Computed example of a mutant assay.
Amino acid sequence: MSDHDKHLRQLIDRMTASGSLRSQPWKDAAAAVPRHEFLRNGFFRVVDGTSPTAWAPVREGGEGWLEACYTDESLVTQIAGTIKPTDIRGEILREPTSSSTLPSLVLRMLEDLEVQPGMQVLEIGTGTGYSTAVLCARLGDDHVTSIEYDEEVALRAREALSRLDTYPNLLIGDGLQGGDQGTLYDRIIATCAVRTVPTVWLEHTRPGGQILTTIGGWLHASELVRLTVHEDGTASGPALGGQVSFMLARPHQAPPLGMLPDLSAGREREAIIGADVLDEWTTRFVAQFAVPTVQRLKLQNGQHNEDVFVDTETASFAALRHEDGRWIVRQGGPDPLWDAVEEQLGRWHAAGTPAVEEATIRVTPAGQSIHW
């Protein structure tokens, strides 16, 4: 048995023991795909003790490269939109823009996709091609279409897949616009997060088909959801839990805040709910459905620290401060942001603050909402 075969078997055993890999067909598919083939361009490793975070390249054949390929970890494969590990020596301080997702999450999502033989699957975000290869091993190349936004990332994935004699339908383009025009898919699975589920995904899914995606947002909380598409062009389904986090699709990422509105203007009142509740993941996830284009920052205003929420699309804002044992909110702009947050969280509290797994997400051409 080769070294990579041994490492692959150990990885499958770990994923089985953790519960992310649950059925024999997906175990067989995972066993057929050597992950290191998709990391031959190397990956970036965090440099310990750095702030801001620095990244150092690990190249194929370097110390710990093969072992890391079979750890159950996400491995960063691109920095700053263009830089791959073979491009630099030393360290880099820019932000990651592409990665190879931890295998247990890949297999957990494929299990959650509830796919059956003969189905046509569209994958949004080819990435390294690892999850594409596992899909092909399970369904066959002719049943898998994968689309990647970044042309260089797509070409590297194509090379890796061809080394395994795997040839799905690979597209280069904006996966937020769906796959092949005129094609209906039984399943759509996204390996990036979206702020709002694109309506075109519903249009590209057969009635009764499913969409598995992570819904995230600019308040930095996200969850995996499985939506069933209905005859009327809407979709609904459960949040699956687990605080699953992916990089947001590039067109859905938050814009720079730029010039802030005049935060001294606006009307003040005592807040029903304080800003500190949004320090908790599930609360932020629920609140995002009410204020999907809001970003949060902390500012000093005189003697007070304020939690400031700004909608860059409308220039609306809410600034909250804790004073004399109570929260005071000051709101300005066309939309009273904190009113919307309090109303949304009020409905959640009235339902007994159920776990996210008890929620139903609904998507229509008019937008998306969360219900209990």
Score class of each variant (00 low, 15 high):
residue 2 S to D: 15
residue 3 D to I: 04
residue 4 H to S: 14
residue 7 H to I: 01
residue 11 L to Q: 13
residue 18 S to T: 11
residue 19 G to M: 12
residue 22 R to S: 14
residue 24 Q to G: 01
residue 28 D to I: 03
residue 35 R to D: 00
residue 39 L to I: 04
residue 45 R to V: 11
residue 46 V to F: 05
residue 46 V to Q: 15
residue 51 S to I: 03
residue 53 T to N: 08
residue 61 G to M: 08
residue 62 G to Y: 08
residue 66 L to S: 12
residue 69 C to H: 13
residue 71 T to C: 07
residue 72 D to W: 07
residue 72 D to R: 11
residue 73 E to V: 02
residue 73 E to P: 00
residue 76 V to Q: 07
residue 76 V to C: 09
residue 79 I to H: 02
residue 79 I to M: 14
residue 80 A to P: 03
residue 84 K to Y: 14
residue 94 R to P: 02
residue 96 P to L: 11
residue 97 T to P: 11
residue 99 S to H: 07
residue 100 S to R: 00
residue 102 L to S: 08
residue 103 P to D: 05
residue 110 L to C: 03
residue 111 E to P: 00
residue 112 D to V: 00
residue 118 G to A: 10
residue 122 L to R: 06
residue 122 L to Y: 05
residue 124 I to A: 09
residue 125 G to C: 10
residue 130 Y to D: 05
residue 130 Y to V: 06
residue 131 S to Y: 02
residue 133 A to R: 04
residue 134 V to E: 06
residue 138 R to Q: 05
residue 139 L to T: 10
residue 143 H to E: 05
residue 150 D to E: 14
residue 152 E to W: 02
residue 166 T to S: 12
residue 167 Y to I: 03
residue 167 Y to R: 15
residue 168 P to D: 05
residue 170 L to V: 13
residue 170 L to R: 01
residue 171 L to C: 06
residue 172 I to T: 15
residue 173 G to W: 10
residue 174 D to T: 07
residue 177 Q to D: 10
residue 178 G to N: 09
residue 180 D to E: 15
residue 183 T to P: 00
residue 186 D to I: 01
residue 188 I to W: 01
residue 190 A to Y: 00
residue 190 A to K: 01
residue 191 T to L: 01
residue 196 T to D: 10
residue 198 P to R: 04
residue 198 P to T: 06
residue 202 L to Q: 06
residue 203 E to K: 13
residue 205 T to P: 01
residue 208 G to K: 08
residue 209 G to M: 01
residue 211 I to F: 03
residue 217 G to F: 10
residue 220 H to N: 14
residue 223 E to I: 10
residue 229 V to S: 04
residue 232 D to Y: 00
residue 237 G to M: 04
residue 245 S to N: 12
residue 249 A to H: 05
residue 249 A to C: 10
residue 251 P to D: 09
residue 252 H to R: 03
residue 253 Q to V: 05
residue 256 P to W: 06
residue 264 S to Y: 05
residue 265 A to S: 15
residue 267 R to F: 06
residue 267 R to A: 15
residue 271 A to E: 12
residue 277 V to Y: 09
residue 281 W to Y: 15
residue 283 T to E: 15
residue 284 R to V: 09
residue 288 Q to M: 13
residue 292 P to I: 02
residue 293 T to Y: 13
residue 293 T to V: 03
residue 293 T to W: 13
residue 293 T to H: 15
residue 294 V to F: 08
residue 302 G to D: 09
residue 308 V to I: 12
residue 312 T to F: 09
residue 312 T to Y: 13
residue 313 E to F: 08
residue 317 F to C: 03
residue 321 R to I: 15
residue 322 H to E: 13
residue 324 D to V: 07
residue 328 I to R: 06
residue 329 V to C: 09
residue 334 P to K: 13
residue 335 D to A: 12
residue 339 D to K: 13
residue 339 D to Q: 14
residue 341 V to Y: 05
residue 342 E to K: 09
residue 343 E to W: 10
residue 345 L to Y: 09
residue 345 L to S: 10
residue 356 V to T: 13
residue 357 E to T: 15
residue 357 E to H: 08
residue 358 E to S: 14
residue 360 T to I: 15
residue 365 P to R: 08
residue 369 S to V: 02
residue 369 S to C: 03
residue 371 H to T: 14
residue 372 W to S: 10
residue 372 W to M: 11
